[in-house]
Design a protein around this nucleic acid. Structure first.
Length: 683
DNA sequence: TAGAAGCAGATTTTT
DNA sequence: TCTGCTTCTA
């Protein structure tokens, strides 16, 4: 029982659980990963359960990879070759569909498309409604397991769609989209789950067989599961109820994306004799930080209830910064961080969090001005970059030249002189002859598109054919040699970045090929679509990111900016204040020892300047009064020349401080006005 | 065909 | 204010 010795009582109780349903309520920083991995190691190493009978599902690749590594480490000595299935929900769907796609009369060499691909396809069919709305609706329908036909006959129309006519357009687009996916053998992210569910649902025997195989199921981040994932779980545990779900209802922040917090809130009633374990001892943050987090989240009604208890000794005051505007906020925080780094703190231990990405701009300017290296976490993902997706498309074509979707993407990249009109001609030719675009290129007449384009396209087709014969070790070299993507992207505006990305990608593929004697291009291509890049956090830079992107991370020093009513909590028509509060809770609990909460009197957003009130979360967390500290860099002096949007240029006659801001008496060419400093700028 | 100009729209985004 | 998409022109 050696491996259980590093756990506290609650953790140990959770880790020793074997049969039946259990809910582990794991507060922020409470050793959740340790508990899950120790339990898995305990089941396999001590109880003697076959690793192949376990299934552990997570939401991110990062979590899956880390957990697998840690679990295997614990059982390395006794079971060196154990290989429990520990992966994301979507990867599980992918593995399942590879085996059972034929149940739906579809081939298993499908290609997974990402959200951009999805939108591109939708646009072919529906252009009068915002693609985002159509895309989200399709997602919603799929997750409700509703077919296009069922949507058309439904009478419940969501208000934001704008009436029956639009609803029918969306339903039609959904139908065309589905047909396109099937025709091109594509699957989207939602399909990985809903097709898996459909197959299990219509094959009770298969479902039973699968359920009997995965006798011990663990689900991580259960608060983020949606209805479909719950249903899938039901199928997977149909032959037993050995289900351990781990999560924190207070950290449910993806409700707007279909996650159902009810899944975790109601788990106790949905499974029989559920044991509940609360992990409340926090190993991350100081007690001041935890007190603030506890007080804040206590304002939520819809929760199971738990309190984080600090195990740490040191305890700094939480600091409240009140700034005149976003520039001054950025300046103060940047200067502060520059000093921290100067004093020897490692940049990776510092993070700035915001509720909306738009707040990063002023911040970045301040950081640059102070020479603070920073990295934006969760911006455009590596595999979503155009240059990377182009290479992926070429690779897909090498695997399957009849992949029209990929060919369309790169047919004019690098430029081959083929425009929209020309492409339509080629596409029509392919359609009429019921052949792929690749075959159409080989069979078309030279006159169809003109000699130049004809030659260029034939060369493309020939190159692809030739690359199919290439040795894996020469693949990348030959690919670049034939298509010259580096040369092509060198000329684009962000050429340098793109070249670096291409080199990184080429390098990583070559490394995989080198390290793996039976490298499979197909497997590689499927996996990278499911890959995000949260784990690419930089070595020598501070991190700046949205609160959502910060989930699961921790830093010694955390600055939360934009704590103003309207921004955080973000107020909108369909806003859920409890989810906003949970976001506040997630943000605060990222900090280990040092937390600074910052707000501004004024902020320019979407070109408009607004006067803002401090976030209610500051008082709800019990942080306002006494500890308030006022700072402002935007100082005005008598005699300063200033500019006002309406009154123009004027000269400051008098400065009066009011709370954290300044009231200025200004002379605009004889016209004397009293104006708050936020409305004017120094010239 | 491809770059330039004009215009609407704009949270958060694990896969 | 800024971006990304459609429309216009060489």
């Amino acid at each position: 029982m050696d491996i259980l010795s590093s756990l506290n009582d609650a953790q140990r109780e959770a880790a020793r659980h074997i049969d039946g349903a259990m809910l582990i309520l794991a507060g922020a920083g409470s050793g959740k990963t340790l508990t899950i991995t120790t339990r898995l190691a305990y089941l396999i190493g001590e109880v003697g359960i076959d690793p192949l009978n376990t299934l552990t599902l997570t939401f991110t690749n990062k979590a899956a990879t880390e957990m697998k590594l840690r679990a295997l480490n614990l059982i390395r000595s006794s079971q060196p070759s154990a290989n429990p299935l520990l992966c994301t929900f979507h990867k599980f769907g992918l593995l399942f569909l590879k085996l059972y796609m034929r149940e739906l009369n579809r081939a298993n060499n499908f290609v997974i498309i990402d959200i951009d691909d999805k939108k591109k396809i939708i646009k072919e069919f529906e252009n009068s409604i915002a693609t985002n709305i159509v895309s989200n609706e399709i997602s919603r329908y799929k997750n409700m397991l509703l077919s296009p036909e069922e949507i058309i006959s439904s009478s419940v129309i969501p208000a934001f769609i704008g009436g029956r006519a639009n609803y029918e357009k969306i339903a039609k687009a959904y139908k065309s989209y589905e047909e396109y996916l099937v025709a091109n053998n594509l699957v989207d992210f939602d399909d990985l789950l809903c097709l898996t569910y459909r197959i299990l649902d219509s094959n009770p025997n298969l479902c039973n067989q699968i359920s009997n195989r995965y006798k011990y199921i663990t689900i991580d981040e259960y608060q983020d599961t949606n209805e479909l994932q719950y249903k899938l779980l039901r199928k997977l545990c149909q032959a037993h109820e050995n289900v351990v779900v781990v999560g924190d209802d207070d950290q449910s922040i993806y409700g707007w994306r279909g996650a159902k917090i009810e899944n975790i809130l109601n788990f106790k009633d949905q499974f029989s004799s559920v044991k509940v374990v609360r992990l409340e001892e926090n190993y991350r943050s100081s007690s001041n930080i935890l007190n603030a987090a506890n007080e804040l989240i206590d304002h939520n009604r819809n929760r199971l209830g738990k309190k984080l208890i600090s195990t740490k000794k040191d305890n700094k005051d939480i600091e409240i910064l009140q700034n005149s505007d976003e520039e001054s906020e950025a300046k103060i925080i940047s200067a502060r961080i520059a000093k921290l780094i100067n004093d020897g703190e490692h940049p990776t231990q510092i993070a700035i969090l915001y509720r909306i990405n738009a707040l990063s701009r002023a911040l970045e300017e301040g950081l640059i001005a102070n020479g603070v290296p920073y990295k934006i976490v969760g911006g455009i993902k590596f595999y979503e970059r155009a240059e990377i997706k182009d290479i992926i498309s070429y690779l897909r074509l090498i695997l399957n030249p009849h992949d029209d979707f990929s060919l369309e993407r790169i047919i004019n990249r690098p430029k081959r002189g083929l425009g929209k009109v020309g492409f339509n001609k080629l596409s029509e030719f392919a359609f009429n002859n019921k052949i792929s675009l690749y075959e159409a290129i080989l069979r078309m007449d030279e006159g169809l598109l003109g000699k130049k384009v004809f030659t260029a396209l034939n060369e493309l087709a020939r190159d692809i054919t030739e690359l199919r014969e290439a040795e894996p070790k020469d693949l990348i070299f030959e690919l670049e040699n034939k298509f010259g993507l580096k040369e092509f992207y060198k000329q684009s505006p962000e050429g340098d970045d793109r070249l670096l990305n291409i080199d990184e990608f080429y390098g990583s593929i070559n490394q995989k090929i080198e390290n793996n004697p039976d490298f499979s291009l197909e497997e590689f291509l499927n996996d990278i679509t499911l890959q995000s890049d949260q784990d690419r956090i930089s070595e020598d830079a501070i991190s700046i990111m949205s609160v959502h992107a910060s989930k699961g991370l921790e830093f010694e020093h955390v600055f939360i900016i934009g704590l103003e009513e309207g921004f955080f909590p973000l107020i909108s028509d369909e806003c859920d204040i409890e989810e906003e509060r949970r976001l506040g809770y997630v943000a605060i609990t990222r900090a280990k020892s040092d937390l600074v909460l910052s707000s501004s009197n004024f902020r320019i957003y979407r070109g408009k300047k607004s006067n803002l009130e401090r976030s209610r979360f500051l008082s709800e967390a019990g942080l306002i009064s006494g500890k308030l500290r006022i700072e402002s860099t935007k100082e005005f002096r008598r005699g300063d020349l200033i500019k006002h949007k309406i009154f123009g240029i004027g000269r400051v006659l008098e400065v009066t401080q009011i709370k954290s801001d300044f009231k200025l008496k200004i002379n605009f060419g004889g016209n004397i006005k009293e104006i708050m400093s936020g409305f004017v700028e120094k010239v």
